[in-house]
Write a protein that binds this DNA or RNA. Sequence first.
DNA 1: CCTACCGATCGGTAGG
DNA 2: CCTACCGATCGGTAGG
Lengths: 206, 206
Amino acid sequence: MSPRHSAAEARRTRDRIVDRSVALASLEGLDGLTIGRLATDLEMSKAGILGHFGTKETLQLATLERASVLFGRLVWEPAADAPPGLRRLHAVCEAWIRYLETARDVFPGGCLFTTAAVEFDAHDGPVRTTVARLLTVWRRRLAADVRHAVAAGELAPDTDPEQLVHELTGVYLALNQSIQLLRDPAAPDRTRRALDRLFRSYAAAR
Amino acid sequence: MSPRHSAAEARRTRDRIVDRSVALASLEGLDGLTIGRLATDLEMSKAGILGHFGTKETLQLATLERASVLFGRLVWEPAADAPPGLRRLHAVCEAWIRYLETARDVFPGGCLFTTAAVEFDAHDGPVRTTVARLLTVWRRRLAADVRHAVAAGELAPDTDPEQLVHELTGVYLALNQSIQLLRDPAAPDRTRRALDRLFRSYAAAR
DNA sequence: CCTACCGATCGGTAGG
DNA sequence: CCTACCGATCGGTAGG
């Protein structure tokens, strides 16, 4: 009755598993996530889950990959039409706030990458490497727009792009903590003010 | 041979357990921490460990309490002699950097509060409440020095203390991530530059 | 994709 | 503080 699926059906099942896994990992972490819990939630057997991935680690990597696709969709895509440089930086930052503020259905426990970073920072392996790689790619992407803004005279010529991006990272980590742990409804507005101040302090002198 | 200890000896054993627990929790999280691992490390039985606390949750709370004492010793005490206001803020911030940079023996996996905040932010209960309370107390303490600095004319009169403290929090979350996950040796210096910029942007106009 | 297992480990308890 | 346990759950496998 249940087995003997077409490849397309197997694919859809896999998608269902990974979607649920992203939500669970956001709440429990990539390690707190268990195959048994996933099986219960999806009304499948553990072996049915594991058959798609082989090991829990592969499932964790698939979960990160899916989360990064969602992140791209929620944060990078809305800003894709903005002109490169400061305008696009502003657009990305606003999308980033909305991602943390409103994407509760897909990441009910907050930013999965922040959770995974803390969970795996002391454990070498493919998961740790992947998390670090994703964060680094995004930092580079932001730094490219910073460089563009500097070249266009929108930011001060002595701006250190990596430094500004590092400071932006902190603004978002604080936002995630204020939303998830402190449940401070003022957090998004605080973040907007922090960004204004930060960009102003890097603005080109006129 | 082993049982029938005096109260003082029991106390010392408890201290040993909690010290090890702080280090383990820094690496594995307060949840990743297990009584079995603790027992192996300390060459005790699981029941011997649990006898001091009753439940794992009580052990987690004792671990947080001890970590907060260590945090006080490493971050607040070195700044206690500085005059209140901006000078003490600077002293606390520098001690905070050193805490994350060099306290590897006591917190080998980075800031335990950052780890615990992410681990428990989606799980109501005494542990979550305690973590939130500790962070809030420290934020208030910082805010008091910000207010003092404003009153003394060291920071701009329109400074929003909670806002500045929120931004300081982000600076430290970014530092912890850069050290632990990205292993960036430039992170402490980046943090000092971020702090300079932040305090300058809040400086009283002259 | 299932049933039926496996050894290992979890938090915790009884009783001394 | 120990030994000796408990039921539950973990990731994973065999075989269909």
